[in-house]
């Protein structure tokens, strides 16, 4: 489904991704782990099309189509979804209006009719329950005054509504207590499907106890330095990143 070949990207002239290679098939769940500054978030932003990052080399295809040629919103309509690490507030725009606009943009792209307000309300209420969010949240401004945990649940709810082909979860577990982590994980597990891939970016192994990945990759210094199965994450938890010989590089990166 998603194929990344020799991807290089930089921000403000500084190269962050230095040749990423990754193949993700439909139905698979991949986890990307790595120390701070390794390029995990950059990878998710680049895939979603954030223009702050410049792709300098390499290619990315989604089901054979060149993703890098598409605008952010076109990628979204082709099925790329990014759950943000720090979801931004849009004051005065209700969650409901925002989500309905998004869902209808997707439906229009697929040649389906727009959903009216009543139909959408029903759907949104059902989905909000799946992530244990009070439907009253739908009427509030987008992320306006939401707690960290509520913002994350709101992101997962959007993934459930938009039914993407590839869901990228950027540190969706950060800042969550154990109960909230369970709720968010249940939401993500509900997303798992044969025709959908999930790419999780995380710092901690604990998320992977709840959402069990098929593959784990270690990102360091802008490259994938090791790939393996579920057991790789456990090994990282036990031994840290040092045994992979990337400790120095991490230190160098954070010194920058």
């Amino acid at each position: 489904m998603l194929s990344i070949k020799n991807l290089h990207a930089s921000v403000e002239g500084k190269e962050i991704l230095k040749g990423i290679n990754l193949e993700i098939k439909a139905g698979e769940v991949h986890a990307i782990m790595g120390p701070n500054g390794s390029g995990k978030s950059t990878l998710s932003q680049v895939l979603a099309g954030n223009e702050a990052f410049e792709v300098t080399e390499g290619e990315v295809t989604l089901n054979g189509e060149n993703l890098l040629e598409l605008e952010t919103e076109e990628r979204a309509r082709e099925g790329i979804f990014l759950a943000f690490q720090y979801p931004v507030e849009i004051p005065g725009v209700s969650n409901l209006q925002f989500l309905r606009t998004a869902v209808n943009a997707m439906r229009q792209h697929k040649g389906e009719g727009e959903m009216n307000a009543a139909e959408f309300m029903k759907l949104a209420k059902d989905v909000s329950k799946q992530v244990d969010l009070d439907p009253a949240f739908l009427k509030r401004g987008v992320n306006e005054g939401f707690s960290g945990g509520e913002k994350k649940r709101n992101e997962v709810m959007q993934a459930l509504l938009l039914q993407p082909k590839l869901a990228i979860l950027d540190e969706t577990d950060s800042g969550l207590d154990i109960d909230a982590l369970q709720v968010v994980s249940n939401g993500v597990n509900a997303l798992r499907a044969e025709d959908r891939a999930i790419l999780m970016v995380t710092h901690y192994q604990r998320l992977l106890n709840h959402i069990v990945p098929d593959y784990v990759h270690v990102l360091a210094g802008g490259r994938i330095v090791k790939s393996g199965g579920r057991e790789l994450a456990l090994e990282l938890e036990e031994r840290g990143y040092g045994w992979l010989g990337i400790k120095d590089e991490e230190a160098a990166n954070s010194a920058n």
Binding site: A48, E71, T72, I80, L82, V93, F98, T101
Partner: peptide, 17 residues
Amino acid sequence: FLCRQRGIEPEQAVSMI
């Protein structure tokens, strides 16, 4: 970026905001 990542046209996003 949030709006566009959800498939919303830039014009529509500005107008909504």
